[in-house]
Amino acid sequence: MTARPRVAVLDYGIGNLRSAQKALERVGADAVLTQDATVVSAADAVVLPGVGAFGACMDALRDVQLETVTHDAVASGVPFLGICVGMQMLFDGSEEDPDARGLGIIPGQVKWIPSSVQRPQMQWNQLNIRRDEPMFSDLGEHPWMYFVHSLHGVPTDSDCVTATVQYGDTLNVAFRKGNVFATQFHPEKSATAGLGLLHNFVASVKS
């Protein structure tokens, strides 16, 4: 591939998006923070980040008219990556805000992690990769990633879980459904391993 893949990072006014943008640039993408539907539809890949509360993020996404744009991007077949609450928003709903409706792209619910452990899990933890997955290529068997979360995704179809971690229980932390990838951890904050995953994501853009 000659040109740098264009990655649209959906910007709906939440906290730190710049790290995701800079990490994608570091691994060879031309990354732009945007809420412009035309920029998103022209992109080679799309990233949905998210921090904070599920309901607040869904509201913010809808406020800037990015909900339909997100569905269109997923339907277009381009590589799509949800990160942290951006991952959680892909589900139908969340125990954190039972009244808030999710995007419903990955059927299932987002549920609290056990209260027997400190919440949030705010630490590095080691993935158990459940199946061969291009996103994890060259990362080793148990890469370390950085987590900040109190809930995790429980999909209806457990086959879409690609990695778990142990924290109070076995938590689902990475998912794949067609062209949609999603991680509970922050690859943009996970040093070399995280950059490796983002590199794999950018490399999945068809030349």
């Binding site: 730190n16 800079k22 990490a23 950085y146 922050h186 904050k189 040093a191 995280g194």
Partner: peptide, 11 residues
């Protein structure tokens, strides 16, 4: 902070 975010990929 801005320059750090360009080069440092830990929290």
């Amino acid at each position: 902070v801005s320059r750090t975010a360009e080069q440092v990929f830990i929290p």
